[in-house]
Simulated scan of single mutants.
Amino acid sequence: MRTLFIAGVCTLLVGLAVTPAAAAPGPPEAGTPSNSWPAALQVVTDDDVNVAWSGDALRIADPAAVPSGRRSPVVSGLLVLAPHDLATAANQVRAFTTKATAGVDVEYRGRPAGGAWSEWTPAGTALAQDVVTVQIRVALTGETAAVNAVVLVAASVPPAPPAAGLAAAGNVSRVYATREGLVGATTANGHVIAARDHFVALPSRRGLAPKNTGDYTVRVCTTSGSRCEFAPVWDVGPWNTTDDYWNPAATRQSWKDLPQGRPEAQAAYQSGYNGGKDQFGRAVANPAGIDLGDGVFLDGLLLTDNSWVDVAYLWTGTGVRGVVGSGPLNIRAGAGTSFASKGYAATSAQVPIECWVTGQSVAGPYSTTTRWDRIGTGQYLSHAYISSTTGGSAPAC
């Protein structure tokens, strides 16, 4: 847990600049202690990526650490603060910064009681519902990016329109998948890539899960549906870093004129969109909208070359979720280990539990049980490997 005591918060607030900027800001209104608090910028842990407190500011730790491959050619860093409980429910967090340079972005996400995390959103943007817990992260882009202090203020404001008609799987699109590789490199959330690793990369931080969590998980399947993998989003890319193409145009971070589900790189490659270039001016050499860790690519989907796949962005959906505590775990065609494997569920992945059936007894790390969870049509996991669930209780099938 990060803690930082700042004496005289009211004094600190004088002259702060608001992020994101709107009009000339005044001091934030007084709030309860838990709804107005300073960010612990001086506390950097293993969950953070390429940032350090140096002198009087949070800065990039290694200016030479430019991401590998088709990720951003610009050095970046990420400070992820511990979740913060609010005294009263709210649906907006504003950020007030001091001595912030260009390239400093404050983002947050929220969680209602007993619910799932929202997508990461810029500070100052309203969520669709009130939440009781929030988490802050500070992103630095560019080797000179720095910020001295951040004070957060949570409040209730008119909510953003809720997404309509979501199924358990959430938004689904067919996109081109490439193999990430890069064994030994560090992902955008600080994970060091291992051989045959089970994670994916998407071209926006909005769906980036903190290290060793599956808060943002995709279900990626071959177009025939014969193989699927549930895997956490642990990296940003390919090509772009602000392309949350799975979201509706109205809330899409960039390229709002493209239809939902169409990555900018795909439009650039196929149609010459943006002059055939990505956001950094690089010529797009393939239409990739998702990168697959080698374990997902080779073992989960049994791919031998880059390919079109069907992707469900599960955090945009609803319903009961189970966390795979020990994996990669075989997805079975029925409620027993003798049934054919249909793919994998990676460690930390959050899988939708539609209902459960009684089947073969399995002794796993979390229980010995005959319960098998149905996570899709003809897809079952032993509940002995599910470490926790959210969103309520699943019914019997």
Rank of each mutant, 00 (worst) to 15 (best):
A177Q: 04
C228E: 06
G207D: 05
R205Q: 12
P259Q: 03
W255E: 11
I193A: 06
R206I: 10
D244R: 02
T242P: 00
V200F: 00
R252Q: 09
A194D: 11
W239G: 07
D243Q: 09
L208F: 09
S224T: 15
V200I: 09
T251W: 15
R252K: 11
W255H: 13
P259W: 07
T187N: 07
P232T: 06
T223E: 05
C228F: 01
A194V: 13
D257H: 10
H191C: 05
A249C: 03
T241P: 02
T251L: 12
K256Q: 15
C221I: 04
V192A: 10
I193P: 15
L258I: 08
S173P: 00
A177Y: 00
A231M: 01
R179T: 04
S204K: 05
D257E: 12
A195K: 12
T241M: 08
D243H: 10
S224R: 13
G181K: 02
P238G: 09
C228G: 03
H191Q: 11
A209P: 09
R219M: 05
G181W: 09
R174C: 01
R219I: 02
P232C: 05
G214M: 02
V192Q: 12
A195Y: 01
G181R: 02
A194C: 01
P203H: 04
N247P: 02
W234S: 03
G214H: 07
H198W: 15
V175G: 02
A250D: 09
C221V: 08
T178L: 02
V236I: 15
V200C: 00
W234N: 03
W234A: 02
T222A: 06
V220D: 02
S254L: 11
A194G: 13
